[in-house]
Simulated scan of single mutants.
Amino acid sequence: MLRALKLHDGSTPVHLMRTHRGVASGQPGSPRAMDEAFGEHAAAVAPRVVLAMGPLAAQSLMRSGDPLGKLRGRTVPLDGVEGVEGASVVATYHPAYLLRNPADKARAWADLCLAAEQHSPTPN
């Protein structure tokens, strides 16, 4: 999918960050710890768009408890993270989910196209 969007050739930096569920606040993987880790990483790379893959990442970055189905298909400003003013978040399915549910790949493609639109400069 990255190849089809021409994001694989290195001219557009693509950074990956994994998240894990924690048991208590402050443990690695807890929402607070994920926010802190994401903030440090995001400020260093200054993204224009963040693709949140899976419900855990989407809910954390969009600051919502809604299911992934309600978070997909729109962009949300990435507020409250220093160094990424003007960036937005697009939610999509986790790659492991897509391997188990290939029928949802078309929806994931639509999400990637939405993210690519946010990344691309607007024509004059």
Rank of each mutant, 00 (worst) to 15 (best):
L98T: 04
G22V: 09
S120N: 15
P123A: 11
M1S: 11
E82Y: 10
R107L: 14
G10R: 04
G10C: 08
R18T: 09
L7Y: 00
V84N: 02
G10V: 11
A24C: 07
T92Y: 05
T75H: 01
M62A: 14
D66G: 01
V50I: 15
E85L: 00
H119F: 12
A57W: 02
A110P: 00
P28S: 10
M1W: 07
A108D: 06
L16W: 08
D9R: 09
P13E: 13
P102R: 05
M53V: 08
P77C: 08
L71M: 15
M17T: 03
G54W: 04
A91I: 08
H20F: 11
P121S: 10
M1I: 05
R100A: 15
A24R: 14
A91N: 07
D66N: 07
Q118Y: 00
Q27T: 14
G69F: 08
L78V: 04
Y97Q: 12
K70A: 14
S60R: 07
E82R: 12
G83K: 13
R18C: 12
P31I: 00
L68T: 11
R74Q: 15
P121F: 07
A37C: 09
G39L: 04
P95D: 05
L56D: 14
L99M: 14
L51F: 12
H119Q: 05
G39S: 12
V49N: 01
V90M: 10
R63C: 09
L78M: 10
G22I: 06
H15C: 09
A91H: 13
A37Y: 03
A91T: 08
D79M: 12
N124Q: 08
A96G: 11
A110W: 00
V23C: 03
P28F: 06
W109I: 08
N101P: 00
R32Y: 01
W109L: 07
A24L: 13
G83E: 10
V49L: 06
A52Y: 01
A103V: 07
G80A: 10
Y93R: 07
Y97C: 10
L98K: 08
T122K: 15
H8N: 14
R72G: 01
H20W: 11
L114R: 13
V14G: 03
V76G: 01
M17P: 01
C113I: 07
M53W: 00
W109Q: 02
F38G: 03
A44G: 03
S60P: 00
T92G: 15
F38Q: 03
P77N: 07
L5I: 03
G80W: 04
V76M: 11
P123Q: 05
L114W: 08
K70W: 10
G54N: 09
W109G: 01
R21D: 03
V81I: 13
L7S: 06
P67W: 11
A58Y: 01
D35A: 13
Q59P: 08
V50T: 02
P121R: 08
Y97A: 06
R72E: 04
S25H: 05
L98N: 09
P55L: 09
V23P: 01
S25Y: 04
V90C: 06
S64I: 01
M34W: 02
L71A: 11
P77L: 11
L71H: 04
R63M: 12
V89E: 03
K105C: 10
N124P: 05
E36N: 07
L51S: 06
K6L: 05
L61Q: 07
L5V: 05
T19I: 02
Y93F: 15
A87D: 06
A4D: 13
R48Y: 02
L68N: 08
S120R: 15
M1F: 06
A57G: 09
